[in-house]
């Protein structure tokens, strides 16, 4: 059985200070000085990939795992980590993030082309990534590869009989579904959010193993209109700071702002 997990590297936005906000290239934020991280939904997918391939309760699934990413040189370190964790194939498509941030079509077509040459039974990826926030790649991969999509997956496992069981959410309700293969899984707020950590010895063993590079055909797609403009939101409300504290502050705010506020529909 073959399993493909796609992931994207993102800047760690928690480390962006208010004073460092700056538009870059007219359509993005300047984040080149921020540390990277694997998109959290993809990271869950990568850990699921490992768990699905582990022997469990008498089941010995023979799964060939591939980790796949589109990005720059910074991705190599993460692919090596995945190699150390047992991903048999670690594939990099070298491309600058600016080129595909708002082009989920390009990303999906690249993945679909790879799958065309390397058929997969299970394709896993996060439902969205922070920069582009397109929330579209999994759906497009589903259509392009002709594999049905399961959305908002929060847990995955094989049953004793070898069928795949997924746990999905739908606006707070949780369901368990058994699904036929092949399938595309779009990962939501999963029960696990972190990839396990390889030992130093595992990393040393894989240090010089080759990564695979994939060069897709040039594609174009007009489905998602490019942004015309990017604006840093000004969320300031010019807040009134009560000069009082305790009960006096409550009286102050109550008198100035709250009285009658709930009245209108």
């Amino acid at each position: 059985m073959k399993l493909l997990t796609c992931f994207k590297l993102c800047p760690d936005m928690d480390k962006l200070r208010q004073q460092d906000f700056e538009i870059s290239g007219g359509k993005g934020l300047e984040t080149s000085f921020l540390p990277n991280m694997i998109n959290c939904f993809d990271e869950s997918g990568l850990e699921f990939g490992i768990r699905l391939s582990e022997k469990s309760e008498g089941l010995e699934p023979n799964i060939e795992k591939t980790a796949f990413t589109i990005g720059g040189d910074a991705s190599e370190m993460y692919l090596r980590t995945l190699k150390a964790l047992g991903y048999e194939h670690c594939v990099l498509v070298k491309k600058d993030e600016d080129e595909f941030r708002y082009s989920p079509c390009m990303v999906a077509q690249t993945i679909a082309e790879y799958v065309g040459e390397n058929p997969q039974d299970i394709i896993v990826m996060g439902k969205e990534a922070p920069n582009g926030n397109n929330s579209a790649t999994a759906q497009l991969v589903s259509v392009l590869t002709g594999r049905p999509l399961i959305s908002s997956v929060i847990d995955v496992k094989f049953c004793d009989d070898g069928t795949l069981t997924v746990t999905v959410t739908n606006d707070g309700d949780v369901y368990e579904q058994t699904v036929a293969l092949p399938v595309v899984l779009s990962i939501g707020n999963a029960v696990i959010s972190k990839l396990r950590v390889p030992t130093l010895k595992q990393r040393m063993k894989c240090k010089d193993l080759p990564l695979e590079h994939f060069k897709p055909a040039e594609t174009s797609c007009a489905m998602f209109p490019e942004p015309m403009r990017a604006v840093i939101p000004d969320r300031r409300r010019g807040g009134y700071l009560s000069p009082y504290s305790g009960s006096e502050a409550v009286d102050d705010i109550q008198g100035k702002f709250l009285k009658g506020r709930l009245g209108e529909a």
């Binding site: 000085f33 921020l34 370190m77």
Partner: peptide
């Protein structure tokens, strides 16, 4: 340093 600086000094 990996935990701090890998984005510019891997």
């Amino acid at each position: 340093g990996k935990e701090h600086f890998s984005h510019f000094a891997p």
